[in-house]
Amino acid sequence: MNIFRLAGDMTHLVSVLVLLLKIHTIKSCAGISLKTQELYALVFTTRYLDLFTDYISLYNTVMKLIFLGSSFSIVWYIRRHKIVRRSYDKDQDTFRHYFIVLPCLVLALLIHHKFTFKEVMWTFSLYLEAVAILPQLVLLQRTRNIDNLTGQYVFLLGAYRALYILNWIYRHYTEPHYVHWITWIAGIVQTLLYADFFYYYFQSWKNNVKLQLPA
């Protein structure tokens, strides 16, 4: 464990808890893409298949349970909660899951480190996580209004992966055998996807104006 990875995990944890708290407190999911939340639940499910088979550390197991629990809770709130579901904008949140899931699945079947079920699922979860934010970014551009909690959520989500890249650089230099190019590429693609959002987020923060994404 290094400071970059810990900071990344904490940033990731805060981002999902901020979102869960927002939905639970104001009983609204306005501006939140259910599609993205469902994709994240799928990311955690396919990535943490080793939850009960390989024990790495208490921290690792606890964090996996928190991420799984929070992502499924968020999906449950938006789908099932009698008040929250009313604020879900299903006409705007129309990104097709399979446009994202299928290419990631095909890519994982083609490009992986080992052709085993767990390894292909793990690789699939890396590719999926890189693009899972797309429905949320599309929704933000369509609705054009970004309440600052949603803006913070997306920002923290991007920041966590950027911190992970620093973690991979650190591990690359401190653990000689540690080279995992698939992780690198998926992580860099993911962070680049956030780059333009970061740009507009900082612009709005610097000029102290409401965050607006160009149409």
């Binding site: 990875r5 995990d9 990731h12 080793d50 390989d54 790495i56 690792n60 964090m63 996996k64 991420f67 480190h113 793990w122 992970y164 973690n167 991979w168 591990r171 055998h177 540690y178 080279v179 995992h180 992780t183």
Partner: peptide, 10 residues
């Protein structure tokens, strides 16, 4: 080492 690379990460 037990864990293959980056499988010990979240």
């Amino acid at each position: 080492k037990g864990q293959p690379q980056s499988h010990d990460e979240l």
